[in-house]
């Protein structure tokens, strides 16, 4: 604890009443007035500085428990907070790392023909042409077959037309009989 002499105390007091002292200087004054070596001309202020010191002490007693416990609480909360965000950041970094370092990341761009990966563009085109031709020929066969069937259906329709005229005659005969 730093002690101040009579002259320094006098100077500090004048500055104190002009509100020019710092908090440290005001603490020095409180310590000076709590001691035994107070100059007679300064004794008049003892009551004031002692009252302030007493009030400060009471206030510190009220908050002492707080300082010890709550700084810990706040720090632990902030640590939890940082940990939570840190875990998310690590997960994101891992995902990005895995994406960048994957050697087969171009798989989605491959062309798979008959279960074989084809990376060569020309080969892929030629294979595609072959398959298209096969598809065309299959369609052509279907078309030929379907026209023959249609022709058969037409022939069958022609054959049935004589039955239709016979049926018409029968219907007319039945109606005339009923009228009679």
């Amino acid at each position: 604890m730093e002690t101040i002499d009579r002259k320094r105390a006098g100077d500090l007091l004048e500055r104190y009443f002009e509100a020019q002292t710092t908090l440290q200087e005001e603490q020095l004054l409180r310590e000076y007035f709590s001691g035994a070596n107070i100059a007679p001309e300064h004794a008049v202020y003892t009551q004031m500085f002692c009252a302030f010191a007493e009030e400060r002490e009471m206030l510190n007693l009220t908050t002492r428990n707080f300082s010890a416990e709550d700084k810990f609480t706040i720090n632990s909360n902030s640590k939890k907070f940082h940990f939570r965000w840190m875990s998310i950041a690590v997960a994101a970094a891992l995902a990005i790392f895995a994406f960048l370092m994957m050697p087969e990341r171009g798989d989605s761009l491959k062309l798979i023909i008959d279960g074989v990966n084809v990376k060569n563009r020309e080969l892929a085109l030629s294979k595609a042409d072959i398959h298209m031709e096969q598809l065309n020929s299959m369609l052509g066969r279907f078309r030929d077959g379907s026209t023959k069937q249609i022709d058969n259906m037409n022939k069958m329709g022609d054959a049935l037309s004589s039955f239709k005229s016979f049926n018409k005659i029968l219907t007319q005969t039945t109606v005339s009989d009923r009228l009679e």
Binding site: T62, N65, D70
Partner: peptide, 14 residues
């Protein structure tokens, strides 16, 4: 809430 609960005695004293 935790902070205000702890600060309250000091504030009321003031």
């Amino acid at each position: 809430n935790i902070l205000v609960g702890k600060l309250r005695p000091r504030l009321i004293h003031f």
